[in-house]
Design a binder for these strands. Structure first.
Lengths: 191, 191
DNA sequence: ATGCGGCGGAACGCAACCGTTACGTCGTAG
DNA sequence: CTACGACGTAACGGTTGCGTTCCGCCGCAT
């Protein structure tokens, strides 16, 4: 019944609007205006701003991220960092993600949704990667996957989404090398 | 002329309101309500929501952070991480900082203010610290301070302000050890 | 040919907030 | 005692957005 092209237009408008003004200031009327549809079309699909945003970002972020598995941890790491950095450099993503993260700190519904989406996908990627490396003997036995994930994603996120400095050609390599060194150094052991 | 107790009440109210609803939804009327003052008292001091917030956060964040200088890079690092993690665990800070960071991505005025405050204080701390360590010969000559700062602050910020997982007793130690290893590993060389 | 249903558009009453103004109170300086 | 100025309160007109309703249009299935 509901026309699909209209739905798509609304989804795109929501993403753009989220990027431009953030969740806090996102208004249904602005979404309708931007999508070139009537408010009725929106309320026919969702009953809330919150419900609408949650459904849409769940859908967008839920697309599976391929787990790098090149056979070598160093290469896996390079690849993962490239994928993540590419994602974080997309204009829309780099605006929406920090905004929703901040919003999650005060809205449990958003927090829970992001946790589901990010932790179950992206973060599990990191854990899987570390697991593979340990199994292959490339990382020390007791390596703490938790710490490892923070070490891998933290600097990238900080650089790209927070301090927003451009990354030049070999920055990624240097960072990957440093992360590799920190994990192999045998310091991030658990218990 | 302007009563100081009123000014203080407003400043506190702004911080609380920022933490609760974020910059996007912060309203002058809500601030006045919370501070128990009239809107006139606010407009007598600032002419804008933006101007008000900028002035207040500049003041709050501008308080100098002591640069750790224990004589040993490892101890400096431990200390710095403890200071930063403490700061990021304060409820108000952990809500306001990500919110303003996200807002900075779309408001140049906020971005510039945060850059001034954070980069000139916190970030320079990191660079100074690395500089000391290189001078003492504790880190390789060409260590890239840029990468080092990302490696130090990134994981902490990610953990505390983004993924918001609690840090147990020895997490900080493990993280510090890993960071130390990554820098000493001689990987984060410049050029 | 007819009818159903999604569509855009317009308007509704309601609420919040903007930035400004007028008013009356109160503490303090002179 | 008087005058000044900051204060809280209340109200202003104007804007924006909510969520709802009604209208007329149009595509599509029967």
């Amino acid at each position: 019944m509901l026309r699909n092209d209209i739905t798509v237009a609304i989804r795109n408008a929501v993403m753009s609007e989220l990027a431009e003004v953030g969740y806090g200031r996102l208004s249904i009327e602005a979404v309708a205006r931007r999508a070139g549809v009537g408010k009725t079309a929106i309320y026919r699909r969702w009953s809330n701003k919150l419900e609408m945003v949650l459904e849409i970002i769940t859908d967008v972020a839920g697309r599976k991220v391929p787990v790098p598995d090149t056979g070598s941890f160093a290469d896996d790491l390079d690849l993962l960092m490239m994928i993540v950095s590419r994602a974080l450099q997309h204009r829309v993503a780099s605006q929406i993600i920090p905004d929703l993260m901040a919003e999650a700190a005060r809205n449990p519904q958003i927090a829970e949704t992001l946790q589901r989406v990010l932790r179950l996908h992206q973060q599990s990627v990191g854990e899987k990667l570390v697991g593979q490396a340990i199994a292959r003997g490339e990382l020390p036995e007791g390596t703490d996957a938790d710490v490892a994930v923070d070490l891998i994603l933290g600097p990238l996120y900080w650089r790209l989404a927070v301090s927003r400095q451009p990354i030049d050609g070999d920055y990624l390599e240097k960072l990957a090398a440093a992360v590799l060194g920190s994990l192999r150094g045998g310091s991030a052991k658990s218990k």
